[in-house]
Every structure is written in structure tokens, then in C-alpha cells.
């Protein structure tokens, strides 16, 4: 009789195979939808690849899209590892963007560029962290589940941004469009590649992924946050202050999501609109899960997701398949990844 037995240790090869298998399953299912839409499936995927990597412009666009996804992916990965269900990265992204835009405008901080850019990034991170500390306080003090509160705050944050860009921060020169006053030229991030939108935010994001990987693997805090997620009771027994760990994790997680918003403003848009984020916060959850919460894996998962979105836009223009196919692929890979991860945890015994 075949039965399943829990593995004590999941080998690296299996951990690597899980996301790859998940992506292929997702692409196969999405292929059915592409066929229903009346387009040749393989041709559609070929065009998506060309759309994402076929030219210098395509590559820089894909990487520009990757940067915020790495950060929101890290935000989810760091939080989920400690079983802090931060589903509010979308809202934290928006308030981070708004903080950077407000302080980076001509009415904001007056600092030399070397100080101004880090200050604005920090402001974004602080705003994001503050928005997550609220729900965490409610969980620690009153036992309110943070999943629903962080989700609900996403809508509040969006309305707050809308209120600010139609009010105090409204750009009078935008012909009545609701958008914030642009940040000054000195606040804009230096370009990584000339004549493109790709900015150094990508390096910041990759650098942070490496730092977080090191912190998680090598420091006491990294161990404590993992313990807090795996077995809170045992962690408490071992003398770990759960409150203390969760507050730190929330600051990092919310901070990363807020930083993502700041970088998107300072690197790409220069101002805030309500459609600044095409779901970066929610997609970050998929990125984190595809990476199995591994910070280095997040970089590759973010690149995959960005490839789907940029590629689908271009494929959609050529073949008429709605570009929402990218969202479907990303969502399906999350579900497939969950199944793959759970299968990787077991082995078959006869």
C-alpha cells in the first residue's frame, strides 16, 4: 500500500523544483484560456518572452517592474516567516509613496541630493511601518486578527491618498487631474541605464534581499523571528519576547512595502496618483510564496512575475488576448506552488 510520510528535511533540489513545476502548471492552465481567446498558445508565450526581453527597452522595462515587486515580496516573506499575516503591503506601498512625494516636493525637505534621497526613502519606509504597527498593536493588545485589518486598511490608505492628491498635495499644474505635486529633480533616483526608466532602486532592492537573507541566517533576531513563526509557545518558553520580535518584524515588513512605494515615486513617476500601484502589494504575496519565503528566491520570483506582466502587455497588443492573462498566471502559480510545496514535504513510502 502506498502511503505518504512527512519528510524531516526537504532537499534543496526539491525546493527548487517546486516553484518551477508550479509555474509550468500555471502556464499550462493559462494556455487553455489563451486558446479559448482564439490565439495560438505557444506563439502567445513566445511573444510574451519577446515582449519582456526582446529588446534593450523591453529588458529595462521588465527590470523596472521587478524592483518594487522584490520589495513587496520581501515585505510578505519577512512577515509570513514570523506568522505575521501582513496582507496590507498595498496600503503600505501607497502611504510610503505619498510620504516620499510630500517630503520630496519643492515644499518639502531642502537637503543636498546625497542626503535627500536616503531621507525620502526612509520617510517612505517609516510611513509603511507605521501603517502596519496599528494592526499589530490591535492583535497584541486586543487579539484582533491582522489579516482582515491589514486588508481593510488597504482601502483606507487608497482613499487617504486620493484625499491628499485632491487636497493638500494637489498639483495645480496638472490640468485638474488628481495627482500630487511632483518631487524636485534632485530627489529623483539616478538612472541605472541611460535612456531608460531603469533606476538604482533595483540595486537597493537586491541589496536588501541579500541583507535580509544574511540577517535571517546569521543573527539571533533571524532565528527568533523564525521560531516565533514555527512554534510561538516554544519560542516564548526559550525566553523570546514574542511582542518584541513581532514589532521588529512589522517595522521591517511595513518598511519594505513603504520603501517600495517611495522608490516607485522617486525612480519612475515623480508624483503619486491613485493608480500608482497595479497591485504591487497583493502580487508581493505571490512573489513571497513562489520563493518559499526565501529572500534570495524573492528576487527571481519577482523577475518572473514582472516578466509575465510586461510580456502580457506586449502580447496582448499583438494577439488581442486580454492582458489580464498575466494576473491569472500569477494567481494560478500561487495556488500551484502551495500544492507543490505541500507535496515536497512528503515522500511516498510503499
Amino acid at each position: 500500500m502506498i502511503r505518504f510520510e512527512r519528510r524531516t528535511h526537504v532537499p534543496f533540489s526539491l525546493r527548487l523544483a517546486a516553484p518551477i513545476a508550479a509555474v509550468f502548471v500555471a502556464l499550462a492552465f493559462a494556455g487553455i484560456l489563451i486558446a479559448i481567446a482564439g490565439a495560438p498558445v505557444l506563439e502567445a508565450y513566445r511573444r510574451m518572452l519577446i515582449g519582456a526581453f526582446g529588446s534593450r527597452l523591453a529588458i529595462t522595462e521588465t527590470l523596472t517592474r521587478t524592483a518594487p515587486l522584490i520589495l513587496t515580496g520581501l515585505a510578505a516573506a519577512v512577515a509570513f516567516r514570523a506568522r505575521l499575516w501582513n496582507i496590507g503591503a498595498e496600503g503600505q506601498f501607497l502611504v510610503g509613496a505619498l510620504a516620499a512625494a510630500a517630503l520630496g516636493s519643492q515644499h518639502g525637505l531642502h537637503l543636498p541630493p546625497v542626503l535627500l534621497i536616503p531621507a525620502l526613502m526612509l520617510a517612505g519606509a517609516v510611513a509603511g511601518a507605521l501603517l502596519l504597527l496599528g494592526p499589530l498593536a490591535l492583535r497584541l493588545r486586543f487579539g484582533v486578527d491582522e489579516v482582515v485589518t491589514t486588508l481593510l486598511l488597504n482601502f483606507v490608505a487608497l482613499l487617504f491618498v486620493s484625499m491628499m492628491i485632491e487636497g493638500a498635495l494637489k498639483d495645480p499644474l496638472a490640468f485638474g487631474w488628481p495627482q500630487s505635486v511632483p518631487v524636485v529633480a534632485d530627489a529623483m533616483l539616478p538612472k541605472l541605464v541611460a535612456r531608460s526608466r531603469l533606476h538604482i532602486g533595483l540595486l537597493v532592492a537586491i541589496g536588501l534581499a541579500v541583507v535580509i537573507a544574511l540577517v535571517q541566517a546569521r543573527t539571533v533576531f533571524g532565528m527568533e523571528s523564525r521560531a516565533a513563526g514555527l512554534n510561538p509557545a516554544a519560542a516564548r518558553f526559550a525566553g523570546v519576547s514574542l511582542t518584541c520580535v513581532l514589532v521588529k518584524v512589522a517595522c521591517i515588513s511595513g518598511g519594505l512595502a513603504g520603501l517600495a512605494g517611495a522608490i516607485e515615486v522617486l525612480g519612475v513617476k515623480a508624483y503619486v496618483t491613485t493608480d500608482l500601484s497595479p497591485g504591487f502589494g497583493y502580487t508581493g504575496i505571490v512573489v513571497a510564496m513562489l520563493a518559499a519565503l526565501n529572500p534570495i528566491g524573492v528576487v527571481f520570483a519577482a523577475l518572473f512575475v514582472a516578466t509575465m506582466f510586461v510580456g502580457a502587455d506586449s502580447m496582448s497588443r499583438a494577439l488581442g488576448v486580454p492582458s489580464f492573462i498575466a494576473d491569472v498566471i500569477v494567481a494560478l502559480s500561487l495556488l500551484a506552488m502551495l500544492v507543490a510545496l505541500s507535496l515536497a514535504n512528503y515522500r511516498i513510502r510503499r
Binding site: 494576473d327 491569472v328 500561487l334 495556488l335
Partner: peptide
Amino acid sequence: SQHVTGLGITLFASSLSYF
């Protein structure tokens, strides 16, 4: 995980609706 699966269903069902 009921949390993550549920969010996955939400992302899947809404993107499929739009598609």
C-alpha cells in the same frame, strides 16, 4: 494554509473575472 489559499482564490477568481 487557509490564509494563503484563500488569498490565492481571491486573486485567481478576480483576475479570471476581468479576463
